[in-house]
C-alpha cells in the first residue's frame, strides 16, 4: 500500500531522511518510533507530500506520490490519504459536523444529506454524536482529536497516517484516542503511526520501524522489538522510555 524506495530528503545539507526502503502492506499497522529529531514526522509527511523528497520514489496505493503531476492530481491523491495531525488542526470556524462534511461535499461531490449521514455514523464510531453541532473550541483535546480522525475517515481513504496523534494530549485523554485507533486497526485499516505509545505498538502493530538520524535502523515485530531489540541505539531508546 505504501512503498518507500531509496527515499532521501535533505534540508539544505542536512540529511533528514537517508535511503529509506520500506513497505506498509495492505491491512498492516506499522508504528514508527525513535528519538526526537530522528525524522519520523518528516517520513510520514512525505507520504502525502506535505514534505518533498530529493531522490527515490514513494508509492501510495500504486501511485507515485512524488512524480511530477498537476496540482489537481496531487489534490486528488491527497484526498485519498487520511492524515491525522499532532495538533488536530480542526477548523475553528466550523462546527464539528461541518468540519467532517466540508471536504466530502466540496471535493468528492457527495450530496449534503449523504455527507451528513456519513458524518453522524463516523461520529458514532468515535463516540461523539452528542457533539455534532459543537465547535472545536468547546471540545477537550481528546475529543478534538477524535473528530479529526472522523474528518479524515470521511474521505474514505484506503490508508490512514497518524503523526504523533496523542503527543499533544493530557495523559487522561490519550486512552480515548488510542481506543479509536485500535478499533480502526481491528477493522483492517492500513495504518502508519508515528507514536511514543509503546503499549499501543505492542498490542496493535504488525511491525515496528525504529528510526534514528533519518534512517530506519531496525524493523521487527513488536513482540521481538520490545523484548530484545538488536541495534544498540534501539536498546538505549527503549531503556530511556522505560526509565520514566
Amino acid at each position: 500500500m505504501i512503498k518507500f524506495s531509496h527515499v532521501n530528503k535533505f534540508y539544505g545539507d542536512y540529511p533528514a531522511l537517508v535511503d529509506i526502503d520500506a513497505e506498509v502492506k495492505r491491512g498492516e499497522v506499522v508504528v514508527v518510533c525513535g528519538p526526537s529529531g530522528s525524522g519520523k514526522s518528516t517520513l510520514i509527511r512525505t507520504v502525502n507530500r506535505l514534505e518533498e523528497i530529493q531522490s527515490g520514489e514513494l508509492f501510495f496505493d500504486g501511485r507515485n506520490v512524488h512524480a511530477k503531476m498537476s496540482g489537481t492530481n496531487l489534490n486528488r491523491l491527497r484526498s485519498h490519504i487520511g492524515f491525522v495531525f499532532q495538533n488536530f488542526n480542526l477548523f475553528p470556524h466550523l462546527s464539528v459536523l461541518d468540519n467532517i462534511t466540508l471536504s466530502p461535499i466540496r471535493i468528492n461531490g457527495v450530496g449534503r444529506k449523504d455527507a451528513r449521514d456519513k458524518a453522524m455514523a463516523l461520529l458514532e464510531r468515535v463516540g461523539l454524536t452528542s457533539k455534532a453541532l459543537a465547535y472545536p473550541a468547546q471540545l477537550s483535546g481528546g475529543q478534538q482529536q477524535r473528530v479529526a480522525i472522523a474528518r479524515a475517515l470521511a474521505m474514505e481513504p484506503p490508508a490512514m497516517l497518524f503523526d504523533e496523534p496523542t503527543s499533544a494530549l493530557d495523559p487522561e485523554m490519550v486512552g480515548e484516542v488510542l481506543t479509536v485507533m485500535r478499533s480502526l486497526a481491528n477493522d483492517g485499516m492500513t495504518m502508519m503511526c508515528v507514536t511514543h505509545e509503546m503499549g499501543f505498538a505492542r498490542d496493535v502493530a504488525d511491525c515496528v520501524w525504529f528510526m534514528d538520524a533519518g534512517q530506519i535502523i531496525e524493523t521487527a515485530e513488536p513482540a521481538k522489538f520490545f523484548r530484545k531489540p538488536e541495534h544498540p541505539r534501539a536498546q538505549r531508546f527503549l531503556s530511556d522510555l522505560r526509565g520514566h
Partner: peptide
Amino acid sequence: PKGQMDAARALGHSHLGAMRFV
C-alpha cells in the same frame, strides 16, 4: 496557525479551495 493550511491540503483541498473554505 500553519496547521490550518496543512490540514486543508492534507484533506485534498486545492490552494484556492483551502483559502475559500478554511
